[in-house]
Computed example of a mutant assay.
Amino acid sequence: MTGNSDVSADSPLHTAKQYDEPSVFTPKSLLREARRQKELPDEPVPDICILDPDGDLVRYLVKTGQAERSSNWPGYHTELYEFERNNTTFGIIGCAVGASFAVLVAEQLFASGCEFLISITSSGQIQQRDDPPYFVLIERALRDEGTSHHYRKPEEYAMLDTDLRDRIEAECVSVSRPVYTGATWTTDAPFRETEQAIERARSENILAVEMEAAALYTFAAVRDRPVVCFAHVTNQMGQAEEDFEKGEENGSQDALEVIDVAADSWRSMA
């Protein structure tokens, strides 16, 4: 999917970028000052953390008494919850919607001791692989958002690490809901998903549209951090009646199965 040839080279998104130059403002400095202000100890988060942009999984875990809010998480804009599953402690943050917010939180989590990050986000169907809901293991994401362009030179796609993809893909056969491996389109503007843009995405065999993966994968590649993103395809962008249905408990049990597979696959690589 090539960009418009008349895009101005003077756009701030593409100028004044020195990709090898370190940032003056860092997640560690933000967290240091947050801990000072909130009088919190410097304690690590769990090794495996989850981004839950919809917040449905967090709400389910809290409602069923499986998760408790961490009293030591210093993030200004978020709350970290922890829960135990299969003898593993997970950290989870809900409602981090969109590329910039997701990467802001990812930076903070890895600066706080996270070793592996899983993102599961609701997505709109582009190419039909099944009747929603189902999952897509995102192997590449179209960089139609702004955040990734602050981390890496312009390229069309951000990619999932191939070893991690192969491990997870092989284990996804155990998940109750179908899990397909493929591409997504990451956008900053969901209410600008025009017919032309959708058709262009279909022409590249893109399976779904979401709002975080391209930025998270670019961050992961630049920072050399393991991140995997799943698209939970739940809707046809409001073009069908009774759309946006995830299933029982808003798809939380299905999402937990996917998380188990991803966590086990990452641990097998250690």
Rank of each mutant, 00 (worst) to 15 (best):
M1Y: 02
G3Q: 11
V7R: 15
S8P: 03
A9M: 00
D10T: 06
T15R: 05
R32I: 02
E33V: 08
A34F: 05
P41M: 01
D47W: 01
D47G: 04
L51Q: 04
G55H: 11
V58C: 09
V62I: 11
R69S: 15
S71R: 06
P74N: 12
Y76H: 10
F90P: 00
S100Q: 14
V103P: 04
Q108E: 07
L109M: 11
F110D: 00
S112T: 03
C114W: 00
F116E: 00
I118S: 04
S119T: 05
T121Y: 06
Q125F: 09
Q125D: 09
Q127W: 12
Q127M: 13
P133G: 08
P133R: 10
V136G: 08
R140A: 14
L142N: 13
L142I: 13
D144C: 12
S148L: 03
K153T: 03
K153C: 09
P154H: 11
Y157T: 01
Y157V: 01
A158L: 03
M159Y: 13
T162F: 09
R167G: 10
I168E: 06
C172F: 05
S174L: 12
G182C: 15
G182R: 15
W185H: 13
A189Q: 08
R202L: 06
E204G: 03
L207K: 14
A208K: 00
V209G: 12
M211L: 14
A214D: 00
T218H: 02
A221D: 12
V222Q: 02
R223H: 13
A231Y: 05
V233W: 02
V233N: 09
T234P: 05
N235H: 08
F244I: 03
G251I: 06
S252H: 12
D254F: 11
E257F: 02
V258K: 02
W266K: 10
W266F: 05
R267H: 14
M269N: 10
A270H: 09
